[in-house]
């Protein structure tokens, strides 16, 4: 069984993101980066599936981006991925161009399962997995918080929806996107990270894949969001209720 795990390099969630004065993007010079947290969850799930189902499971981490992506792909190797593959691409992405590229990778690699994040925490789009499933005409299960094999090629997936926890059954091959509750990703140990530095990362060009991914979303500008509220401190519950009733008039 082959599992592909798309992993995106994103600014660390501990970072405060600042916008360049000209609005063309974020100030990225001194940012720390990480594997998109939802992708780390996807990778953890793939590794657990391999642990449960044995050595005939191969887990491949895929990054679509420039050479900087190698550092996150090495983290993926250190966590336990069998292979890491980078599709060299140094332009702008949108979920559409990512899905196009992943579809080409899927045609080449022929995985049984694509496990990926429900959303990249930089663009917050929440689209690439669903688009990939649509392009491949594969089953999809988004926002997964539990994945169980009910047959060798049939999965039960619990999905976190606005209405509650939904359960569906899907057949492989399929695309599954992960939500926060699926698991707690393991850390890559320092020795494993050192070892991963020496491991190869396969690189392919979009040309090799036969795709020319063109984003359909064009960023005109980014604006910093600031909240200008000044907090008025109140002394006790009585004062707070009074303010809410007679000043803010919200109750």
């Amino acid at each position: 069984m082959k599992i592909l795990v798309p992993t995106k390099r994103v600014p660390s969630t501990d970072e405060r993101v600042r916008i360049r004065p000209d609005g063309s993007g974020i100030e990225d010079a001194s940012l720390a980066y990480m594997i998109n947290p939802f992708d780390a969850i996807a990778l953890e799930e793939a590794l657990q599936i391999r642990e449960q189902r044995g050595s005939n499971v191969e887990v491949t981490a895929i990054g679509i981006g420039n050479a900087d992506f190698e550092s996150e792909l090495r983290t993926a190797l250190a966590m336990g991925a069998d292979r890491a593959l980078r599709v060299d691409f140094d332009g702008c992405h949108d979920p559409w161009s990512v899905a196009q590229t992943l579809a080409a990778v899927v045609r080449r690699e022929k995985p049984d399962l694509v496990l990926m994040g429900k959303q990249a925490v930089d663009d917050d789009a929440n689209q690439a997995g669903q688009m990939l499933a649509g392009l491949l005409d594969w089953p999809q299960a988004t926002f997964a918080s539990k994945i169980e094999f009910v047959e060798p090629a049939r999965l039960s997936v619990a999905r976190e929806t606005d209405r509650g926890l939904e359960t569906i059954l899907i057949r492989l091959p399929a695309v599954i996107t992960t939500d926060l509750r699926l698991n707690e990703p393991r850390y890559a140990s320092l020795p494993a990270l050192m070892k991963a530095k020496k491991r190869p990362i396969e690189t392919i060009s979009c040309q090799d894949l036969g795709v020319s991914p063109e984003p359909k979303v064009r960023l005109v500008r980014l604006e910093q969001v600031t909240i200008d509220r000044t907090c008025e401190r109140v002394a006790d519950a009585a004062e707070l209720v009074h303010k809410l009733r007679y000043e803010a008039k919200v109750i």
Binding site: D94, P95, W96, A99, D124, A125, N126, Q127, A128, G129, Q130, M131, L132, A133, G134, L135, Q140, T142, F143, E160, T161, D162, R163, K216, V217
Partner: peptide, 23 residues
């Protein structure tokens, strides 16, 4: 923009070769 739409519309967009913006 609910989980209903987030689940279904990107897939429909892919079937239509269409661009999408969420939220």
């Amino acid at each position: 923009s609910t989980t209903f739409a987030k689940d279904i519309l990107p897939r429909a967009a892919a079937l239509l070769n269409a661009a999408m913006a969420g939220d």
